Amino acid sequence: MAASAHGSVWGPLRLGIPGLCCRRPPLGLYARMRRLPGPEVSGRSVAAASGPGAWGTDHYCLELLRKRDYEGYLCSLLLPAESRSSVFALRAFNVELAQVKDSVSEKTIGLMRMQFWKKTVEDIYCDNPPHQPVAIELWKAVKRHNLTKRWLMKIVDEREKNLDDKAYRNIKELENYAENTQSSLLYLTLEILGIKDLHADHAASHIGKAQGIVTCLRATPYHGSRRKVFLPMDICMLHGVSQEDFLRRNQDKNVRDVIYDIASQAHLHLKHARSFHKTVPVKAFPAFLQTVSLEDFLKKIQRVDFDIFHPSLQQKNTLLPLYLYIQSWRKTY
């Protein structure tokens, strides 16, 4: 089996927390979720979201995140109150960019949308954001926290390059993509939290790379249903696996070995980020709550012996909000 052949990389499970039942964490995340308004986002309300009498641009960002990046939404709820709305805006910006690729039928249209967001970032730093909910909220975040323009532009530029429907040539190319998107998002989150620390940035770099790799793995069944495969070609070739094997949902050992190798790289990034947690300011830990969902996925895929098409991998963990709150309460990542 794939797991038994390579099992030495995987460390002990961390979500089991001995003695936790003896201490009762304060009510927090679930209460916040219940208090949030929840009407559906419609095209009509989106168009009017920044106008008078609408929910408001902040509510639009929150709803977009809740629907399109639920794990990011849950993590954002546990940030300090003064930072929450800015991170909602930042993550909503990322969602807007991420959904361009799947929402257009022609690359030219995707490039036009990316050009809109490039100009939007430029206009935000000229205090002239367009009348668009996410743009307005992002402008507020930039003004409030003096966010670095370079990180925002890196996210747009990398998403634009990724409009080509090509597999990553190697794991390094996937890591570079993750660094310029997910890690950049974390650098900006640290700025919102008021953290300027080399060790925190180092952790953000590795956690962002782990996030990018896990996202690529999780999306494999969806991409396969659209006749697309984006997994690193070098690892596929190493194990003699073709793109057609993934399109046919082949579950042979060599296919699972490909998934094992890729998942192991995410695991190593996560492990390395945690190896120097004592040197990272505690104030930075809330920015890294996504490690909970990353670890949850890596454990699940290990349990199914790296069968990327196993139905259990597509099921939401209903206990994730609780695990996130516990992680926040324990002040760790």
Rank of each mutant, 00 (worst) to 15 (best):
G208P: 01
D307R: 03
Y177W: 06
K283W: 06
D201R: 05
L190M: 13
Q315N: 11
S312G: 10
T332A: 13
C216I: 14
Y168R: 03
L138E: 02
H131F: 15
T57I: 10
R303I: 09
D201S: 05
A219R: 04
K278S: 09
L270R: 00
C236D: 02
S184Q: 12
E191G: 04
F285G: 07
L190R: 01
A178C: 15
R248K: 09
K283S: 14
V134R: 02
K101M: 14
R66A: 08
G110I: 04
P130M: 06
K118W: 04
E191Y: 00
L289E: 00
P221D: 13
I192H: 01
Y187E: 00
L268T: 08
D164I: 13
L97H: 01
A287F: 00
N94E: 04
K228H: 15
S105R: 15
G56M: 15
I192D: 02
Q115H: 10
A98C: 13
K209I: 06
T215G: 13
E82I: 14
T189Q: 14
K300L: 09
S76E: 01
V229I: 15
Y73M: 08
K107W: 09
A49Q: 14
L186G: 04
V156A: 08
E158V: 10
I109E: 05
L186S: 04
D157I: 09
E106I: 09
S86P: 08
V282S: 12
R150T: 07
D58H: 13
K143N: 08
I207F: 03
L65P: 01
L78A: 11
I326A: 14
C61G: 07
Q115V: 08
N180G: 14
V241N: 01
L289M: 09
K172Y: 12
V255K: 07
L247F: 07
Y125D: 06
G110T: 08
F93H: 01
P221E: 08
E122Y: 08
W151G: 04
L319R: 13
V100L: 15
W117E: 02
L193P: 00
S225V: 15
V134Y: 02
D252R: 13
L111D: 10
S264L: 07
A284T: 06
V229K: 03
L147G: 02
Y325V: 12
K271C: 13
A287E: 01
P221I: 10
P129R: 10
V87H: 13
A92G: 08
W139M: 08
L231K: 00
I192W: 01
E96I: 09
L97E: 00
L198E: 05
S312K: 12
L319Q: 10
L322V: 11
A98R: 05
A48C: 14
G240M: 08
H131Y: 14
P80V: 02
S225Q: 14
A287R: 01
K316G: 09
Q314K: 07
L320H: 05
A48R: 15
E179V: 02
R113L: 08
Q290C: 10
C216H: 11
L289D: 00
F306H: 05
L313H: 02
S184Y: 07
L74P: 00
D58W: 07
S275L: 09
R248D: 04
A49M: 11
L188F: 05
D123A: 11
K140D: 01
R66Q: 07
A135R: 02
A200I: 01
H223T: 07
R256C: 11
K278F: 08
P80D: 12
F230Y: 11
V142E: 03
S225E: 12
S76Y: 06
A98G: 10
N176W: 12
P129A: 10
A135G: 12
T57H: 13
C75W: 09
V241E: 02
V104A: 14
L298F: 09
I259C: 12
R68G: 09
E160C: 12
D305R: 07
R249H: 13
T291A: 08
E82R: 15
R169Y: 12
D252E: 14
G208F: 02
Y60W: 08
M114G: 04
D296Q: 08
N146A: 12
K119F: 03
I192M: 12
D234A: 03
S103G: 15
K228L: 14
I155M: 10
T215C: 12
V258E: 01
A92L: 04
F246V: 12
Q211F: 13
F309R: 04
N176V: 13
S83P: 12
K140H: 08
K149E: 07
E82W: 15
W329S: 06
V258N: 03
S264V: 13
P281A: 05
E158M: 10
P130C: 08
H202L: 04
L289T: 08
T148M: 04
L324W: 06
P80S: 10
W329N: 06
E96T: 10
L64E: 08
I124R: 03
K283G: 13
S105T: 15
L268D: 08
H310I: 01
L238A: 12
K253Y: 14
Y323D: 14
L64S: 14
S183I: 05
L324C: 09
S312T: 10
V142P: 00
K149N: 04
R249A: 11
E295K: 05
Q182W: 15
Q315C: 14
L185Q: 08
A92C: 13
Y70E: 05
K161T: 12
L322G: 04
H145W: 08
E175T: 06
D69R: 01
V241K: 01
G212I: 02
Q315P: 06
V241F: 03
T291S: 07
S225W: 15
V280F: 03
K331W: 15
V214N: 00
E158T: 13
L147A: 01
H202F: 05
P52F: 12
L294E: 01
L62D: 04
I301A: 07
A98V: 09
S45T: 14
C236M: 14
I109C: 07
L322F: 10
A98M: 05
L289G: 07
Y168A: 07
D305E: 08
A54T: 08
P130E: 04
L174Q: 04
E244R: 04
T120I: 15
L77S: 03
D261H: 09
K143C: 10
R91P: 00
V142I: 11
R256L: 03
A89W: 02
M233F: 08
Q243W: 05
R66L: 06
V100R: 05
N176R: 13
V104M: 14
M233K: 04
L152Y: 01
L174V: 07
S183T: 10
K149W: 04
E173V: 04
K209E: 02
D157S: 13
P52E: 12
R159D: 03
A284C: 10
H202E: 05
D58F: 11
A54E: 07
D197W: 02
T148Q: 15
S312N: 10
A273H: 01
F285V: 13
D307Q: 06
F246M: 12
F93W: 15
Y323A: 14
T57V: 10
T215F: 06
K196A: 11
I326M: 11
D164P: 15
E160L: 13
I207V: 09
I213T: 02
S103L: 09
I213L: 12
N128L: 13
H272F: 13
V95A: 12
R113F: 04
I124P: 01
S50N: 08
K271D: 15
H202G: 04
A203P: 02
N180D: 08
A219H: 04
H223M: 14
A89M: 03
Y168F: 13
L268Q: 11
I192T: 13
D305M: 03
L298N: 02
V121D: 00
V282A: 12
P286D: 08
H269N: 05
V304I: 08
D252P: 07
A287C: 07
L174M: 08
C216F: 07
L74S: 02
C75L: 14
L198I: 14
C236G: 02
R303Q: 11
V142H: 07
V258C: 14
S50C: 12
S76H: 03
D257L: 09
T318C: 14
S86H: 11
M153R: 13
S105Q: 11
Y70I: 08
V255L: 13
E106V: 09
Y177A: 08
L90V: 10
I259G: 00
E122I: 12
V255G: 05
L313K: 01
